[in-house]
Design a protein around this nucleic acid. Sequence first.
DNA 1: GCCGTTTTCGGCCCGACTGTTTTCAGTCG
Length: 571
Amino acid sequence: MENIEIAKTFDEVADLLEIQGANPFRIRAYRTAARTIGTLNTSVESMLKKNGHALEELPGIGADLAGKIEGLCRTGGLPLLNELKRKTPESLVALLRIPGVGPKRAKLVFSKLGIKTLGQLEKAARAGRLSKLPGLGAATEQAILRGIEQDKVRTARFPLAEAEAYIRPLVETLRATPGVERLDVAGSFRRRAETVGDVDILLAAKNAAAAAEAFVGYKDVKQVLAHGETKCSVVLRCGLQVDLRIVAESSYGAALHYFTGSKPHNIAVRLLGVKRHLKINEYGVFRGKRQIAGRTEPEVFAAVGLPWIPPELRENRGELDAARAGRLPRLVELTDIRGDLQMHTTDTDGRNTLAEMVEASAARGYEYIAITDHTKAVRVAGGLTEAGFRKQWRQIDAIRKTVKKMTVFKSAEVDILDDGSLDLDEETLAELDIVLVSVHSRFNLSKTAMTRRIVRALQHPRVHVLGHPTGRLLGKREPYPLDMEEIVKAARDYGVLLEINAQPDRLDLNDLHVAMARQAGVRVVIGTDAHRIEELGCMRYGVDQARRGWCEATDVANTLHLDAFRKLIQK
DNA sequence: GCCGTTTTCGGCCCGACTGTTTTCAGTCG
């Protein structure tokens, strides 16, 4: 059983327990455990194989939950979940998705009206039967109906880059509003998560009411969900929800910390506060009624004895322990990047010529780039034959004579065929400076077969980089099944770099896999996979992902200067 | 259901907005 399945099972247990009105702390225990298991970077099954009691070492998992996880792995089922489903239809869980419907109301409509599904809820709302229930009125009924409509067209989470595009003009509007003194986009956006569900904006203003007005009156606001004195919430036309919080300057740091999250990180920090008899909220750090910190973010951390922690690490995945021990990584930065190791040209499916890509890359100040056009198996991209590459090399040789400041590596994104062999002959492979390999077909192999296929490719002595290792497209295509622990091990054993593909809808490896590679001592390389010159700018999203995986510059191969990088790729 | 530098029992992070219940529950983040 995969970790993610265990996490989903526990979340479902928590949902059903909530509807049944169980002890909130018991519910929280299941949610915490779900998150812990879901973000673990080794599989539970392999942990159990090594040590039967390893699970109990995990924070928030005691004897009981460890036993349940073990049972899940052994039998594939959980008796508690079956028991809960017997009492409460599992279809009720879908009702919790609707804004305005929580566990209490789900239980209420089920017990009073026999409603079990979203469809039945909609019907009851249209018939005005919800507003007759105690505690519900016409306004709530309408809100629920709107929520159901929204749910039908609900777009998935937004890739970070897309959210950025929608938020930038809103932020400019707010900054230009008279009286606005400070403004930050917080939340998962500031943590540089690969996707964001909503966007949190924090600001300090002389005139809070005017700032709130400017926010709810923004031209692209479709719907105002809440409009209070310090808190507003809207949905933009694009479907993105944006929350605004307005605080005093004296609370700004505490609020920035609070709204940056993540929630589990905040809870962990607040617990540290509780141990020191401090109360931490979005207004500051308080001893009794006296505020002792909160104007700046570093003050908040200092109050619980910690140095400032970069937002990308705030996921409660060990950053507090690392901070306490003085072992926070010095995260890689965009300015550390000296080269881009994946890009395409008009010779295959790129939109700019080789010369244009080279010129634009040089303008970014890179020391080196790799031209990685597709090979012939990728027909839709017009992949090159061996002869095609030789023709391209003549162009590169010519460019090398004129472009002196930047090295252009002859490279290719060589297709990994079904059986793990490579889509170029040995002679051509041997003449490439860098061999990047990746999978573009037969995504439906079994986990075992796909893992074997890729490991075999990594064993090839000419291979330097594994491109977009899991093949996912955010919101469009799931990663193909893969035993990432095996892939990382193979990368280490055969000296292959793992790519962080910086395309905003790939970001592949994900943050957890990056951390896994780093822990195994496998270097990553960040490539933009640019298909046009504008996409060379995606590098920063790849750097964000590396930072979320705790990477320092030394963990990222393309932070090396040219000479050191050349040495690294000598196999 | 978890956990322990006050505790193996009795705690468990904290606050805003909305609607409707005339004082607060439910929901949300």
